[in-house]
Nucleic acid binder design. Structure first.
Lengths: 353, 353
DNA sequence: CGCACCCCTGCGCATTTGCTCATGAGATTC
DNA sequence: GAATCTCATGAGCAAATGCGCAGGGGTGCG
C-alpha cells in the first residue's frame, strides 16, 4: 500500500534513509563529535543502548552527516606543504616526502648553507624517525649528507651500524666529508661505523679484485643489505662535486651527457627515466649498485638546489628513493614535470641541457 | 643565546607551536581521520610508536588542524530541525526537543489529524526510546496522548505500569479517550494499566475524601512517582477540550482568564510564567499536582496547534516538561518569545488574548 | 493465514584508544 | 659547572569502540 514499486532492497548505496532515523543519528553525531561525549554518554543522553549509539554515529558518518577535514592553519601555510608532499608521494610512489619551506638557489651567488641546514634538519628528523635500533644505515658522501650529519641529534635514535656506500679515497686534497659524516652519525646514533676504504672509481680489473677482498666485500655486502639508505644526487655538470673533486674529467662528462645521463647516486649515473646510463663506468665504480639501492625498502633522497632538479627527477623515476627531502622549489619543479607518463628509456634530445 | 626573552613557560594556550612538530601532527591526522587508518597503522606508516601517533593526532586536534562539523544534509533540511531543537533545549533547559516538520494549524477549517499523527509518531518514538522496562508511565488524557497511543508500536519498548494522572469520569457523553490510551499503551508496552476512577473536578470535600481512599490514593501516589509522564496542554479557551467536555463552564473560563492562566496540565492551570493560577480550583482537582509533574525527571509535553502555543510556553517556563514534542510552527513561536527573561509572576495585560 | 526472510536490537569479546607512571635527555638557573 | 626543571618518549593498563553472534518482531510472499 505504501510501496507500489518493487524495491525490496534499496540499491541506492544507503545515501538516503528515513528522516526520522537520521534525526537521532544527527543528534548522536553532534553529541559525540561536537560535544565530545563518549558513546556511552550519548546512549544515556538519548535513551538508547550503547551499541545503538555506536550504530547511530556510524550511520551518521555513512550518510555524510559528519564531515571531517584536516587543514593547514593559515599561520603556518608557508611552512607546511602537505598538499605538495602528498602530490609528490602519489606521483612518485613515495612512502614520505618532506618539503621544507626554503628555496635553495644554488645558481646565484647567495650562500645556501642556511638553506642546506634547514634541509639537513628535515632529513635528520626523518632519518631518526625511521631508524630502528637494529638497523644498518648506509650513506653516500656529498654536501647533502654532510648537512644531515650536522643536524642529527643525539639520543633520539639509535642504529646498529652505519656503513659507507661509495668509495671516497682520493689522491687529491679534495675533502669528501665522508669521515665527518661517518664519525658524527656513528656517535650520535651510537652506531658502529664501517668504512669503504677504496676510491670511487678505478680500473675495472682493480674494482673486480677489490671486490674479492674479504673486508671490502663484506662492507659492500653490508651496504647492499642496509635497512635504510641516505644519499643526495649528483648532477651531470662541471659544477658538481664529482667534477670538482676530480673524480670525473671533462671528457667523461661529455660522454655521460651524450648518453643522456642526468644524475648519479654513489657515482653511478642514470638517465631521465632512471635507467643506468653508462654500463662501462659501472664496472669501474666502487659503490652500491643502483639496483641494490632500488631494492632497499627505505631510501632517503635529499635534494636541494636547482642544479639537482633533473637528477632528482631521474632518481625518483628510477625508484631509487622511497622518501624524499627537498626544498619547495625542487618540489614544484618535480611536479611540473610530466605528471603521468614516465619515459620508456632512451632520452629525449629536446630535454637535454 | 637563542632566547633572550624571559619566556620559560608559554602562556599562549598552545595555539602556536613549532611548525616542524605540527607537520607530523598534520600527517598523522590526515592518515587517521581522512584515510581511516588506525593509530597503530599511522604509527607504522610514520615510523613512530603507537603512543606517539596518538599524541600527534591529539595535538592536531588541539591545534585546530582537524575540523569536524555535523551538518544536516540538504535533502532533508525540511524534515530535520536540529538547530531549532537545540535552541529550544537551551532556551527551556530541556533534555530533548523534537520538532516535526509539519505545521499544525488548528485555527483554519483544515483537518489536522494527519499533522497530529506525525506528532504522535514523533512522541511515541521519543517515549519508547526513553521508557525503561521497570518504569511507570503516567499520562493525562487529551487528543495529544491519543495520537501518541495510536502511534505506539509494539515490542519496541516495555514498561511496568501505565497510570492515569488525571480523573476522567464524566457525567456527560463526552469521550475523553482515556480508556483507549490506557488500554492501547498497556497492550503495546505490556504494562499493567492503572485507572484513576474519579472525575477531574469535584467539590473540595469530595476530593479530600477521595484522596483518603486506599485505591485512589495509591493510584495518585503511583502517578506522582511515575518515572515518565506524558501529557498535552490545554489552553484557556472555549474551544478547548475541558470546556467542550463540560468540565469547565464559561464563568470559570473567565475567572481563569482574569487570573492570567494560559494553560493547564491535568486540569491544573498555570500562568504565563508557569506558576499555578487558581489555588482554589486546585483543591477541587483530582490529578497529579503541577509540583509533582515538575519533580518528575522525565516529562514529555506534546504540543501541536496554534491554540496551544501560549499554554506550551507557560508549561515550559514552569519547568513541567523535560522533553518537548511540537510542530515547527510551535517551535518557532516559542523561540520568538522572550529568549531570556522569564516573567516574575503576575501577567501582562498586553499579552492577553 | 502461515511461512520465510530480513532488519533491528542487545550481548559478549577482540581491538583500539586515551591515560598515567617512570625514565632519560636537554634546557635553565644559580 | 652542577643541580633542577621541563619536556618528550615508551610501557602498561583501563576505558572505549567496533564487530561478531543470536533472538524477536515486522513484512511480503505464497
Amino acid at each position: 500500500m505504501t510501496k507500489p514499486s518493487p524495491v525490496p532492497k534499496a540499491p541506492d548505496g544507503d545515501t538516503t534513509a528515513a528522516p526520522e532515523d537520521l534525526r537521532l543519528a544527527l543528534r548522536a553525531a553532534t553529541l559525540y563529535y561536537l560535544d565530545g561525549l563518549t558513546q556511552a554518554q550519548v546512549a544515556d543522553r538519548l535513551g538508547v543502548s550503547r551499541a545503538t549509539a555506536g550504530r547511530l554515529v556510524a550511520r551518521a558518518r555513512t550518510h555524510g552527516l559528519v564531515r571531517i577535514e584536516v587543514t593547514t592553519p593559515p599561520h603556518l601555510r608557508d611552512d607546511l606543504h602537505a598538499d605538495i608532499e602528498h602530490a609528490l608521494e602519489k606521483r612518485f610512489g613515495l612512502t614520505e616526502a618532506v618539503v621544507v619551506g626554503v628555496r635553495v638557489d644554488d645558481r646565484g651567488p647567495v650562500d645556501n648553507s642556511a638553506s642546506f641546514a634547514v634541509l639537513g634538519r628535515a632529513a635528520a628528523s626523518l632519518l631518526t624517525r625511521r631508524l630502528r635500533p637494529a638497523d644498518t644505515l648506509g650513506f653516500t658522501w656529498g654536501p647533502e649528507t654532510i648537512a644531515v650529519a650536522q643536524a642529527i641529534p643525539s639520543g633520539v635514535a639509535t642504529c646498529k651500524t652505519i656503513v659507507q656506500l661509495d668509495g671516497s679515497v682520493t689522491t687529491s686534497t679534495y675533502q669528501t666529508g665522508t669521515e665527518y659524516v661517518l664519525g658524527r652519525c656513528a656517535e650520535q646514533l651510537q652506531a658502529q661505523p664501517v668504512r669503504l676504504p677504496t676510491p670511487l672509481y678505478a680500473d675495472a680489473t682493480t674494482v673486480a679484485s677489490m671486490r674479492t677482498d674479504s673486508v671490502i666485500s663484506r662492507t659492500l655486502e653490508l651496504g647492499s643489505r642496509a635497512d635504510v639508505m641516505m644519499f643526495g644526487v649528483g648532477a651531470v655538470s662541471s659544477s658538481t662535486t664529482l667534477f670538482e673533486g676530480s673524480f670525473l674529467d671533462t671528457a667523461m662528462l661529455d660522454t655521460l651527457d651524450e648518453l643522456g645521463a642526468v644524475g648519479e647516486i654513489g657515482g653511478r649515473f642514470f638517465r631521465e627515466d632512471g635507467t643506468p646510463a653508462h654500463v662501462e663506468l659501472e664496472s669501474r665504480t666502487m659503490s652500491t649498485p643502483l639496483s641494490e639501492i632500488a631494492a632497499c625498502p627505505s631510501t632517503i633522497l635529499v635534494a636541494g638546489g636547482a642544479s639537482k632538479h633533473r637528477a632528482a627527477h631521474g632518481a625518483l623515476c628510477g625508484g631509487y628513493a622511497t622518501m624524499l627531502v627537498c626544498d619547495i622549489a625542487c618540489a614544484e619543479w618535480l611536479l611540473d614535470r610530466s605528471p603521468t607518463h614516465p619515459h620508456d628509456s632512451g632520452f629525449d634530445p629536446t630535454e637535454m641541457r
